[in-house]
């Protein structure tokens, strides 16, 4: 049977705004499958985003959706979750949105360990504004604001999330379509802050400037650079140069923020009684 994505999408909203070959659509399909796997109730699920091409994703989803301001998704989401902890809260957005302008909210969301799932669509560029470099644009790559090549070092978003305290961190790519939903589903089921970084393609703004002949070329590159963590463990260091580890990169159990706050409420009510 063809997969029924339409039941999760608001009627009349397709076609979406993304360019031909933009990986955001592939990630959105993965997200829908993951939500199905976890049996999330639409009424009780909020999808929160910032600003950017990736951040337009919630508008298509038939849930409680919140398209906020650039970089602020994680902070809005924290408010939703704190005020209604029984809601499933998912965050989606781009690399610029999440770790440039939103970097502060991102790391603190990881640190608090609220039960939320953040899917970062990392296409290594600012797509919506026409291809300026982001904190994940490779050093030396071309962007509209790096006429002599990008001088900036990069963030590794997954490492950033682990360092900041997220308790489930996984990475995959838009090429590894079946892994996207599996990892997101695992993240949703995990009790605590989960970050799923999906390496994505932006043919319009990144591909064109960086000598990719086509979307398919970009997909093939994603296939080539990805090495599953388990395989990487058995590989010599020189073979891992330029590769990107995929799969579940980190997982630990740590007290979840809202559960801890519920105890505070009990304590305060007790003191009041």
């Amino acid at each position: 049977m063809a997969y029924d994505y339409e039941k999760s999408i608001r009627p009349g909203k397709l076609p979406h705004i993304w360019c031909p070959g933009c990986g955001h659509g592939i990630v959105m399909k993965g997200l829908i499958r993951a939500m199905d796997t976890c049996g999330l109730d639409k009424n009780n699920t909020a999808i929160v985003s910032g600003i950017g091409c990736a951040s337009r994703l919630p508008g298509y989803m038939d849930c409680c959706t919140l398209h906020t301001a650039h970089g602020r998704a994680a902070a809005f989401a924290a408010g939703v979750k704190m005020a209604k902890p029984e809601m499933n809260v998912l965050i989606v957005g781009g690399d610029g949105d999440g770790v440039a302008i939103g970097g502060n909210h991102f790391i603190h969301a990881c640190r608090r360990n609220m039960d939320m799932t953040y899917v970062v669509l990392n296409n290594n560029i600012y797509g919506m504004t026409g291809g300026q470099f982001s904190p994940t644009t490779p050093t030396g790559a071309n962007a509209s604001t790096t006429p002599y090549g990008n001088p900036d070092p990069t963030f590794d978003i997954s490492k950033l999330a682990i360092g900041a305290g997220a308790t489930f961190v996984a990475r995959t790519t838009a090429f590894h379509a079946t892994q996207i939903d599996k990892l997101i589903a695992e993240g949703i089921k995990h009790k605590g802050m989960s970050v799923i970084e999906v390496l994505d393609d932006c043919p319009t703004c990144f591909g064109r400037r960086n000598k990719f002949r086509s979307v398919v070329d970009m997909m093939k590159r994603l296939k080539e650079v990805a090495v599953p963590v388990q395989a990487a463990a058995k590989m010599p260091a020189e073979k891992l140069e330029g590769k990107i580890l995929t799969g579940v990169l980190f997982k630990e159990e740590r007290p979840e923020y809202c559960a801890e706050y519920a105890k505070i409420i009990e304590k305060a009510k007790g003191a009041n009684a």
Binding site: P20, C22, H24, A177
Partner: peptide, 15 residues
Amino acid sequence: CELRCPDFAVKVHTE
């Protein structure tokens, strides 16, 4: 094809 199409434009009806 159905898995990878970014545009929800391919459907493979298997029955």
